[in-house]
Amino acid sequence: MLKLIRLEWRKHRFAGNFLGAGIAMIGILLFLIMIGFLDQGTEDFAFLDYQGSFILIDTFARAVFIIFAGVLISKLIISEYRDKTMNVMFTYPIKRHKIIAAKLILVFIFTFAMIMVTDIIMGALLLAVNQYYGFITEPLESKVLWQMVVKYTISSISAAAMSLIPLFFGMRKHSVTATMVASVLLVSIVCSGFSGSNGPTMSINSIIIIPLTLGAVGLWIAALSMVRLETKDLN
């Protein structure tokens, strides 16, 4: 399996996606800075407390990289089905489900890693900037910080798993458009939220059963796509 993953990495020049991820992180940072300036001095200031600030950062990270995962699924799987290159790959003396599994593992690991890295970098920048400007006055205890790290590790895993859901829609007619539309709709659901009395303190993702359920659905769809290789998807 590791050899297959390495082959997929080289075949699709996967390292180039890190450049795109870096640009996406810069976009997230600029957007967060813009929100900070526009909301400054308002009662529902986006960065009024650590909880709301980290939720906002994690929401943007998940939204961007779930859509990014949709792009990767389109490139690694859907486009190869549409262009018939997948049928050529299936003539190799390798079990078909392993070929798809290698591609999905790449998407999963990349999505998880990029969400976590974004959360950590943006969180560290928030703490550093707050040391100079003090817009968040509440103390940040180490216990609370570690709880957030654990929470958003689980959140990143579930987001990486649920990012596989668009595969189901893309495989219906091997449509890149359907895959991307499904990714955007998924983001609109899981990254929506509602405000508390002092700003954006809650999100749909905070209701833990929702991301865990959607993550399980994503893994189920990945498994189902491999089971169907022998029948409908090859016809």
Score class of each variant (00 low, 15 high):
residue 113 A to L: 15
residue 156 S to V: 09
residue 165 I to G: 04
residue 48 L to W: 07
residue 135 F to H: 13
residue 146 W to E: 12
residue 235 N to D: 11
residue 47 F to T: 00
residue 163 S to E: 12
residue 63 A to P: 02
residue 41 G to N: 05
residue 150 V to I: 15
residue 233 D to I: 15
residue 192 S to W: 06
residue 221 I to A: 06
residue 18 F to H: 02
residue 9 W to E: 01
residue 225 S to W: 03
residue 112 F to E: 01
residue 30 L to T: 07
residue 88 V to A: 05
residue 27 G to T: 12
residue 106 L to R: 07
residue 9 W to M: 00
residue 120 I to A: 10
residue 207 I to H: 08
residue 57 I to P: 09
residue 229 L to I: 12
residue 75 K to G: 00
residue 183 S to G: 04
residue 197 S to D: 12
residue 103 K to N: 07
residue 124 A to G: 07
residue 234 L to H: 15
residue 48 L to S: 09
residue 138 E to V: 08
residue 8 E to I: 02
residue 108 F to H: 04
residue 182 A to L: 08
residue 227 V to C: 03
residue 80 E to Q: 14
residue 162 M to R: 11
residue 70 G to Y: 01
residue 89 M to P: 00
residue 58 D to N: 15
residue 118 T to I: 04
residue 79 S to F: 04
residue 12 H to K: 09
residue 60 F to T: 14
residue 124 A to Y: 10
residue 210 I to S: 08
residue 77 I to A: 02
residue 118 T to P: 12
residue 153 T to K: 10
residue 118 T to M: 08
residue 195 S to V: 03
residue 233 D to S: 15
residue 127 L to H: 12
residue 164 L to C: 12
residue 43 E to Q: 11
residue 65 F to D: 00
residue 123 G to R: 00
residue 72 L to Q: 01
residue 51 Q to P: 04
residue 146 W to Y: 14
residue 64 V to C: 06
residue 198 N to C: 00
residue 124 A to K: 03
residue 189 I to H: 07
residue 84 K to W: 08
residue 142 S to R: 10
residue 114 M to N: 08
residue 121 I to Q: 01
residue 105 I to V: 15
residue 52 G to L: 12
residue 64 V to P: 00
residue 205 N to I: 05
residue 89 M to L: 14
residue 175 S to L: 10
residue 145 L to G: 10
residue 41 G to C: 05
residue 187 V to R: 06
residue 166 P to N: 13
residue 8 E to Q: 14
residue 2 L to V: 11
residue 169 F to Y: 08
residue 76 L to M: 09
residue 202 M to P: 03
residue 38 L to R: 09
residue 226 M to Y: 09
residue 37 F to Y: 03
residue 179 T to H: 03
residue 229 L to V: 13
residue 44 D to T: 07
residue 159 A to H: 05
residue 192 S to F: 14
residue 180 M to G: 09
residue 190 V to G: 00
residue 45 F to E: 03
residue 174 H to Q: 15
residue 1 M to I: 08
residue 5 I to E: 02
residue 65 F to N: 01
residue 119 D to P: 00
residue 83 D to M: 02
residue 110 F to H: 07
residue 210 I to P: 00
residue 113 A to C: 09
residue 21 A to W: 13
residue 79 S to Q: 14
residue 82 R to Q: 15
residue 31 F to S: 15
residue 48 L to N: 14
residue 75 K to N: 12
residue 127 L to G: 05
residue 136 I to D: 03
residue 194 F to D: 04
residue 60 F to M: 14
residue 157 I to Q: 06
residue 192 S to C: 12
residue 101 A to C: 05
residue 111 T to C: 00
